[in-house]
Amino acid sequence: MRRAAARAAGTAAIALVMVPALFPLYWMVISSLKGPQELQTIPPTWWPRSPSLSAFTEVFDAVPFGAAFVNSLLLAGLATASVLVTSVLAGYVFAKCRFRGREALFWGVVATMFLPPVVTLVPLYWMVSSLGLADTYLGVLLPWLANPFGVFLMRQFVADVPDELLDAARIDGAGELRIVWRVVTPLLKPAVVSLAIFSFVFYWNSFIWPLSILQDDAKFPVVLALSQLLSYSTSVQYQNVVMAGALIASLPTIAVFLVAQRVFVASLSRTGVKG
């Protein structure tokens, strides 16, 4: 009975934590299914009386939401892939290669994590503009090709890889790049998946930098298209459209986490246990 009571208490505690976390998502879903009249009902209804999907079609009529969705997939996907490659390579160099100034260079990279984004916004804009990359996808991607947090994370994980394993690969004739991709990277699966989740969510939700460098509406990512949709939120008549757009924009990040949750949780447990 004590075990049953403990399980019941644990389940209740988990439910108490999950309800506040999931309530905004639940409210977004039911609001997107309501009609304009029902959205004005006081007190509000907890489930749509006549659920309708019309708001989801209106999203694509109000703004070029489909093109923005594809733009975000392209930008976030390429940026995530680049961050994974550069982070693994840099993490390997900082963890396993010996050269003068290694520690100073590493901590210099880490120090850039503490710079507020607004401090680097103007220098980045002038640098990208001087290269003729303003209002281009490459201009958006250029500052996203590497990430100091990714370098720091990979360096910590690569440091745990035994040097004897690398020496055995070198004796077999493997070069450094082959060692990185064939020997080290398979051992970093939890860290790689975690970094992929963090990077994809971060770049998918990035707003200030794309807004600063892009002028053509056809190149806007989904977060900028959402900002255009927010102009409709001043009227209750279009709040369901705004909620539908926000729900569509949230689906890729939710899907990425659900697909990779097991490896992500494994990586968190590994970082807390050192043996």
Rank of each mutant, 00 (worst) to 15 (best):
F69I: 02
P117R: 03
A111C: 10
A90P: 00
F56G: 01
V263A: 12
F149P: 04
V85C: 06
F157E: 08
D163R: 13
F23N: 03
P64F: 03
P210Y: 07
P43N: 00
P221F: 07
I208W: 15
L84E: 05
Q37G: 12
N205A: 14
V241L: 08
V259K: 11
S212W: 08
L251P: 11
F99V: 04
V184C: 07
A21S: 11
S54I: 03
A174S: 13
M18N: 07
W126N: 14
F200W: 13
P43Q: 00
I30E: 04
S233A: 15
L33Q: 06
Y26L: 13
P252Y: 08
P44E: 01
A9S: 15
Q215S: 12
V122F: 14
W107D: 08
L73S: 11
D216I: 02
V119K: 05
A62S: 11
V273E: 09
S50W: 10
V19G: 13
S52H: 00
R100C: 07
V158D: 00
L89A: 13
Y125T: 08
V192I: 14
T253Q: 14
G272E: 08
I197Y: 13
F257T: 12
A169D: 11
A255I: 15
V88S: 07
R98F: 04
F207T: 02
T185E: 11
P117K: 06
D172T: 07
E176P: 01
V110P: 07
A81W: 08
L115W: 02
P51G: 06
R49K: 08
R49C: 00
D61V: 03
D217F: 03
S87A: 13
V180G: 07
Y125E: 05
A134P: 00
L247P: 07
I208L: 14
R2A: 15
A9P: 09
S231E: 14
A146W: 12
T185C: 14
Q239E: 05
A244R: 02
V222M: 13
V201E: 15
I14R: 11
I248G: 04
K189G: 09
P210M: 05
S269E: 14
A55E: 00
E176L: 08
L74Y: 12
K34N: 03
A174Q: 13
P123N: 06
M18V: 15
A159D: 12
G77K: 08
F202N: 14
V122M: 14
L187Y: 00
L39E: 00
V273S: 13
L153M: 13
W209C: 04
G91C: 02
G150W: 06
M28A: 12
G101T: 10
L33A: 09
F198I: 11
S267V: 03
V223Y: 05
A21H: 07
E38G: 00
W144G: 03
L258Y: 13
L226I: 15
A111M: 10
W46V: 02
A76F: 09
F200A: 10
V122C: 08
S267L: 01
V263S: 15
A169M: 11
V109A: 12
F65P: 02
